[in-house]
Design a protein around this nucleic acid. Sequence first.
DNA 1: AGTTACCTTTACGTTAACGTCAACTTGAGC
DNA 2: GCTCAAGTTGACGTTAACGTAAAGGTAACT
Lengths: 131, 131
Amino acid sequence: MNEMTKARTYSISDLAREFDITTRTIRFYEEAGMLEPERNGQTRIYSDEDRVKLKLILRGKRLGFSLAESRELIEMYDPTSDNAKQLHALRAKIQQSRVALEQQLADIQVMQNELDAAEERCQEALRELES
Amino acid sequence: MNEMTKARTYSISDLAREFDITTRTIRFYEEAGMLEPERNGQTRIYSDEDRVKLKLILRGKRLGFSLAESRELIEMYDPTSDNAKQLHALRAKIQQSRVALEQQLADIQVMQNELDAAEERCQEALRELES
DNA sequence: AGTTACCTTTACGTTAACGTCAACTTGAGC
DNA sequence: GCTCAAGTTGACGTTAACGTAAAGGTAACT
């Protein structure tokens, strides 16, 4: 942390507002071991790093991941791995995630096509009503 | 249904095996009003149409949709809409789905980039161990 | 000193999406 | 006629991811 890194901090309700979630949710993620904010007395103080983790969790949610899955993904980001076994396990997980994401990509593309078709039918039905 | 349409049927465990889910799950989807198989006495008999619906539900699950959301998506497929108001509501839903899907697409692409970076770091760490 | 606005912990409640028995029926094969 | 696999209907249990209320602390205005 040199003099250039701003080292911003956030209160729990700052983050709650920004991401449109409740403070309860944020505390719940901490209970689940996914966040470990500093404390000023009792009060939680969140860093930019905490904020990024929260973003990752919420992105995971949007993609339908459980908290456990999101935690695994987040753990991929720290290079704390010290032995080769861990690293190979990590690569396996990364590969797994890739496969899952490509399945999702395929699902989304199929679905987009189907939405196109659905809208076609919808417009067609509207044209009939007007005629 | 002309003489060319095969009109295959499936037992509950046929579908359970094919999609790797339990029969309880399939009955649950019926309770939730998402499937209405024929009956032979007590026994449920599933058509190709039921099978397609099940596929849609499961794809929805992979994309993180709730059953309620999947149901809405499925309802987009039948052109039972009779008045313009319904049709406009349908188009709104289709548009909503599109937005959600594009958010997911963006999330996935960001995530894929991050996985690339994570794998890079992982391989780098492995190279260091070997040196 | 009182009110307001946040923050805290503790703890019980809720909803979705099934899991897991238990007790029964039903058709196929021996 | 017996067994056995596969089906059925309840009905209660479970887990994840929070919601919600109770009871209280703290710092800043007024």
